[in-house]
Nucleic acid binder design. Sequence first.
DNA 1: CGGGATTCATTGGGATGTCCAACGGTCTCC
DNA 2: GGAGACCGTTGGACATCCCAATGAATCCCG
Lengths: 149, 149
Amino acid sequence: MTAPEPLHALQHIQSLPSWLAGRVAARGRSLVAEAIATEGLKLPHHAVLAAVSEYGPVAQADLVRRLGIDAKDVVLLLNHLEDAGLLLRSPDPRDRRKNAVTVTPQGTRTLERCATLAEQANAELLSPLSPTERQQLMMLLTRIHESSD
Amino acid sequence: MTAPEPLHALQHIQSLPSWLAGRVAARGRSLVAEAIATEGLKLPHHAVLAAVSEYGPVAQADLVRRLGIDAKDVVLLLNHLEDAGLLLRSPDPRDRRKNAVTVTPQGTRTLERCATLAEQANAELLSPLSPTERQQLMMLLTRIHESSD
DNA sequence: CGGGATTCATTGGGATGTCCAACGGTCTCC
DNA sequence: GGAGACCGTTGGACATCCCAATGAATCCCG
């Protein structure tokens, strides 16, 4: 049933859902990255800062598990964010192996601005779709995502 | 209207369409990569091989333009594909600056197998969706993608 | 209560993907 | 015929991703 493909091999690849999703994701990624660059953050920094904000004083190993980022990279990201005054590493008195990472007030303000910027970028990404279609897309993507834990 | 976010900053990020699309794209990417690894190809190699197949004898600069890949990387990818006997670089007699890149019969056969494998991987990616929903998703992604030329 | 296994943060290195700069060789066009 | 553009190639910067090893601290079980 799959017709002879060799003559349209590239078109075939570029018509696959995986390729299409990749392009859309790349554009969304780029839009959000451009938006939050205003605040001096890159995407991984933003994610880490948000995770620290959400999970209060948190150990780095917890960030590794929650975000699925490599421990090495967490160290580097936290270095940058700490140098920028957006978060703080302090020793955990209850377990001297751990760092208790917390957000500074400045970090919270930056995060609030980034939330707005990221939403605007996503609005631009979805601008070709109607509100109903945006909801549909979210629902479909969520279904695919949740089925792959 | 945007409620106070700082307490759910990570959840907020992870509920954005850009993040969701990124996760789905990453999974699709991984599934396809795993599938075509059977043929000894990685994703960029597959794309380049497909482009060479589709555009007949083609200069490397044309591949750079059509695929949006850096010229340096095209060189490396072609080196690998040529060593594997999947394509051929021969001097273009009409322009001695150019290489005329063509697919070998073996390359064509590999490409046919990869087409099937990539389709199977995409079927697995979309397995949580009904046929109608798959069509909807494709339509929505296509609309977003086409509006960003 | 003591000692082996585990966890923590950090450092290092390798493989990969993306991008920019420069180079000699070749062609185009005026 | 000569200036400018284009070709393939090489080199290096930079971020991401994965694996391994370290010393310090804690946990658990016998």
